[in-house]
Design a protein around this nucleic acid. Structure first.
Lengths: 145, 145
DNA sequence: CTTTCTGTAACACCATTTGTTACGGAAAGA
DNA sequence: TCTTTCCGTAACAAATGGTGTTACAGAAAG
């Protein structure tokens, strides 16, 4: 039951596409089945997307979750930012002797390389909408039938 | 005393440049002071570099660590690979319903984006030698004097 | 008032780096 | 030979952050 890595972004892309294709309202219970997990995990994670206007939630009988935007209005980057405002790729520098020029030069190289990689990642995230993922999924499903 | 993130690469770049600039042999004790940590941590981490021919170690009185290559023969990628043979950036996909076309399409987007970012990172790592880091450090130190 | 929802708090679990203590073994020097 | 100085390793605790669960509180519909 441990953690292998952070799968929140992948799970949210997955579930958002499903919700849009299904069209109506879905409960945390049903979404948890899609993600093979627990309803509380769903509320926690979808809650972050609600706070960023991607989905809307309603409590009480007949409540649940629905899309607040169309799939073509949501990019992968939007979802990523809703889950975590910070940098996507961790810095990986050291701070053992902050005044040491050698440590500073090493950190500078790593920071620059990291920034370049993150820029590439953000570029792709920002230009990929969930609508494209939905199209790919439907094409794959049709090809398999 | 806990773990913030993986600083092994940054620390190894730092210490390798110092070792090369000092020229001779260094003990784990002295290197631990450079990294503000414990000698056992140094043996553990430098041990991985030794297994990849970057440094050499010798036990017993007068022993210690020395460079096995010149700074201009070692790239950041060499050090990274010595520390970890796997991919640098974790996959971040989900595997809740491996046969679901939507999950597969989501994972495919993330995997492709990740691969592009890692390619950029590797490109920079592979073309940056420790000699360049040493030059930057010395230029910075001179500028500060 | 009961049922069905979301919203949280409060935990235990896992994986991984890090820090630390405690040895064993090898090499050099007295 | 005995001592000192090294590396090599095992073993264990701490910190971290997503995850899985249980347990309630609150709100809305019937």
């Amino acid at each position: 039951m441990g953690m292998r890595s952070d799968s929140r972004l992948a799970r949210m892309l997955h579930v958002l596409v499903h919700m849009a294709l299904l069209g109506g309202r879905e409960t945390s219970e049903r979404i948890a089945e899609m993600l093979n997990t627990n309803p509380v995990v769903v509320r926690r994670t979808l809650g972050a997307l609600r706070d960023h206007g991607i989905v809307a939630s309603e409590g009480g009988r007949g409540g649940g979750w629905k899309m607040a935007k169309g799939l073509d209005e949501i990019t992968v980057l939007d979802v990523q930012r809703a889950l975590d405002a910070g940098p996507i790729l961790p810095a990986a520098t050291s701070s053992d002797h902050p005044s040491c020029p050698v440590e500073r030069a090493s950190n500078a190289v790593l920071t620059a390389a990291h920034a370049a990689a993150e820029a590439r990642l953000v570029e792709i995230y920002a230009t990929t909408t969930l609508a494209e993922i939905a199209r790919t999924a439907m094409a794959t499903a049709k090809g398999e039938a």
